[in-house]
Amino acid sequence: MAKMTLEELRNLRASKQKSLQKRSIEGKEGQIIIGMGTCGIAAGAKTVLDAFLSELDAKGITNISVTQTGCMGLCHVEPTVEVVVPNMPDVIYGNVDAKVAKQIVQDHLIDHKLVSDHVFDRPAADIYVKDGDK
């Protein structure tokens, strides 16, 4: 890829906007939130973010936002990812890697099935205290 200028970026953005508008109006319908605290980073959360982007892009899914958050209190199963989409329960997935990220896109977002091996609950307040969050 040749080095892109800011002007080229601006033009790409404009042409992408146009093609999005053609494909009907796509509101932001879901959210993928990646835990990017120290423990998440150490466990490879950045690779997970990259994997979600590539996979969503490849599958043409654009009505999902991808954001980051700090520690979700589940440091022992980092990298963690919270997925919030309509008609599905809000789920936190743990031990996510690039492969699991692909699976979440296919199963959870497209087929509306949970990737059950990787589902973890938000820590309940009392467990939180007992386990600490390290």
């Binding site: 982007l53 969503l56 899914i61």
Partner: peptide, 10 residues
């Protein structure tokens, strides 16, 4: 935060 702008930024 949208996939399209994050991919462009990437």
């Amino acid at each position: 935060s949208t996939v399209s702008s994050l991919c462009l930024l990437r």
